[in-house]
Simulated scan of single mutants.
Amino acid sequence: MSVSFIQFFENSIAIAQILLIFSWYQSNSKINDLQLQFSVSFSSNFASAYINFKWIHNSNNDNFFKIRCICILQKLFGAQNYRSWRRSMEIALSTKRKLGFVTGSVIRPVNDPNQTEFWDTCNNMVISWIMSSVSESIVKSIMFVDTASAIWKQLEKMFALSNGSRKYKLHEDTYSCDQNGISVSENYTKMKCIWEEIDSMSELPRVTNVTPEITNFLNALKKQKEEEHLFQFLNGLDEQFSALRSQMLLMSPLPGVEVSCSMLQQEESQREMFTYVQNQDMTALYSKSATSDDKCTFCGHKWHSPDKCWEKIGYPPWHYKGRLNAKRSHSSQEVCEL
């Protein structure tokens, strides 16, 4: 059922209820009170059923029997990618309105059997999503855990590193991340992932009263951070970009990381194009020189190979030596007949 149809259905019910309440209010006040209570109860129940976070919508499953998994680009295989996997899972679960099942904010109801059944169904669905987004070895360790929040806490205890160790490793990677022959865009993407993870681990206090001095300070801090990213990015480039790197460092003001990446990509494209043209010219020149220097081992002449030598395979009929050989062959046949 689409959202637009549900909204239309809710609006129709609301209008019908208002007309019914207004007509009955004039005739009987008691009937009006009962109808008003029933109307409020029905509307609240229908709305709560629609917006309830435990309700399984069509977006959660393809059909009644096949549950569609959430989209996670990379499965969890250890502490190396736990933070990125966790962030992807939080985004995916929030789009399904099921993040509370892993954080523990949605508590299992015990008084209402229907609500309990809904909770168990959604909890099992979230568990299936988690199991499909981790490696096979990790699946075996969480197979018999009852709730999604317990699985979430268990994975955090197993793979979550302390912020100090992780920050040290990330800052070390910023200055040891070299290009090593990969493209400029791939190297920039690799550095960008490290910078974003460092920013996510660095929590700064919120500024409520923004003054011009604070604005200038934040702009200077942002500029200093961009320059630091630029130096880290240029530090890991291959030596073939050393000349362009020197030119960018002489610019005033310094270009941003995105601008530098664009300039390097243009230089990389030009190098690839010139290398291709140069290789084509060298191949043609080598082929020509190889053909001109080679000699036939049968006759000693150039411009042909031994398997195409006419001295070996015979001259064609239009060649004068071919006609001469034909006459000699004809004369020898006449002598043999005599």
Rank of each mutant, 00 (worst) to 15 (best):
V134L: 05
G100Y: 00
N60C: 14
I142D: 01
M89V: 10
R87E: 10
N123L: 05
Q74V: 10
I130W: 01
F101D: 00
R87V: 06
D112P: 08
I70H: 02
Y82A: 03
S105I: 06
A150S: 14
S105V: 04
F77V: 15
K96G: 04
V145K: 04
I142A: 01
N81W: 02
F144E: 06
N63Q: 05
S137T: 09
E136F: 09
K54F: 02
Q115L: 13
D120T: 11
S141M: 11
W55K: 09
G100M: 02
V106Y: 01
P113E: 09
V126L: 04
L73Y: 15
I138A: 02
S94Q: 07
L76D: 01
K96R: 13
Q154S: 10
A92N: 07
P109K: 05
V126P: 00
M125K: 09
S137Y: 07
C69T: 14
S135R: 07
I67A: 12
S88H: 11
D62C: 08
V106W: 00
Q74R: 15
R68V: 13
N61C: 14
R68D: 12
I56K: 10
I70L: 14
N61M: 13
Q115P: 00
H57I: 07
Q115N: 11
S132F: 12
T116D: 11
V145M: 15
V106K: 00
W55I: 06
N61E: 12
T103P: 02
S135M: 06
D62P: 02
D120Y: 07
F64R: 05
I138Q: 01
C71S: 15
I142C: 07
S135V: 03
N61T: 14
S59T: 12
K153L: 15
S59Y: 08
R108G: 04
M89R: 01
V145H: 05
Q115A: 14
C71E: 15
E90L: 06
I107T: 10
I130C: 03
S135H: 13
V126F: 06
S84Y: 03
R83H: 11
G100N: 04
N123H: 07
S133E: 04
T95F: 12
G100K: 01
P113G: 10
K140Q: 15
N58D: 13
K98V: 04
I151D: 00
F118D: 10
M125R: 11
Y82C: 03
I138T: 03
I72L: 08
A148F: 06
K66A: 08
N63K: 11
S132I: 03
